[in-house]
Design a protein around this nucleic acid. Sequence first.
DNA 1: AAGAATGTCAAACACTTGTTCTAAAAGGAG
DNA 2: CTCCTTTTAGAACAAGTGTTTGACATTCTT
Lengths: 219, 219
Amino acid sequence: MSVTQHNPESKSAKSIERVYKYVQRYIHENALSPSVRDICAGAGLKSTSSVHTYLRKLDEMGLIEYRPGMRRAIILKNQNEASDEEERIPADVVKLNCVGKITAGQPIYAHEDYSDSQYVNRSIIGSDDCFLLKVSGTSMINAHILDGDYIIVRKQDSCDEGDIIAALIGDEATVKRYGKQNGKPYLFPENELYAPIPFDTEECKILGKVVGLHRYNIN
Amino acid sequence: MSVTQHNPESKSAKSIERVYKYVQRYIHENALSPSVRDICAGAGLKSTSSVHTYLRKLDEMGLIEYRPGMRRAIILKNQNEASDEEERIPADVVKLNCVGKITAGQPIYAHEDYSDSQYVNRSIIGSDDCFLLKVSGTSMINAHILDGDYIIVRKQDSCDEGDIIAALIGDEATVKRYGKQNGKPYLFPENELYAPIPFDTEECKILGKVVGLHRYNIN
DNA sequence: AAGAATGTCAAACACTTGTTCTAAAAGGAG
DNA sequence: CTCCTTTTAGAACAAGTGTTTGACATTCTT
């Protein structure tokens, strides 16, 4: 038959996602919208026209705001509005929820009722989806991340070498530094007492990049 | 004589301020940098060249970041744009102001409607009487307090041995651990490269106890 | 009053960047 | 394999925008 069926797992879907992720990351890292050609480079596309197409789609999807003709004018639509029933917080402040403990063995995202939320200025972390995780253990002590700290994680499923990330190993969440050794990816603890963990794509999943930290136990 | 004296209340100072304010407002409202011509309209200037000049000056002053050649690429340096409108924060959240930010250049305009503040749950810090201080230097690195961190200080004029406190030495604010050696009080840095400072009640004044820490530079 | 410094303007220029067009490459269905 | 759709590419175009230059007006200094 001649009916085109749109496969959600099609090639373009992945490109769109790459474009979207790159836009997100660029904006958060540079506090500034990327140009179409920036995105070309960042998303591995060689044609500005492709990127242009996808940006329009993302706008239709409501994920970004794309103003025709304006340079560097991509705006991320905010998706973090779930909890704005009655409490009004300043427009530039984001409420982050703590979704669980890290390295505690429990599946993450388990108890949403942990109800341990904190507030951060949007300009600091960006408007994107972030969440909090409470750290337990001392495996990142040399990176000055301590037991009991809350880390702010910006959701993303890839990262650069050297980034400190939150990742799922099996169904356990941990904070580690992502890097490579002999060409192979590892999760490095920042503590001599712990060994690097091979980053196995079957077992491991990147939750996001650590962009901030709150500590309320000072000793 | 031919020396030009810069009058801070000159005509241009007002224009610069108008430009700066407009840039702030534009970014705050549109989440997007204005173009030079936008600013012309917004600041009541008819020449792009004037605006261009002032943007450069603002960059020199350290108030914005202005990337040569890039379109719509102005970034506000004073990171936190606060919504001066009626901001209503949840009852259990406290707004803390940063009182000790060391700024290069002149911290003019900064105090007016855009201040450097962050939000913390009241239950965490236990008291409203707190403020923020931005740490510069590495003298407390062994206590895992880094350069660029914001410490939350609860006001009090005395403290216990072993407390990490913010104190005034002369008229300079520092973070140190308070303790005694041979019965005499000292302020101890947590870094072998620095020497303990005798706590002289003439010179030194306790500002408060460090009860929390926010970090947004993760490396 | 004359000259210098400052503030503003207008216009022209050049480069970045959004947009469009056409075609090639890559898959899928029959 | 062939036809068709989807996806990407490359190039060309057009518009927005940063930058520069020179001139005029205003203020300050001597």
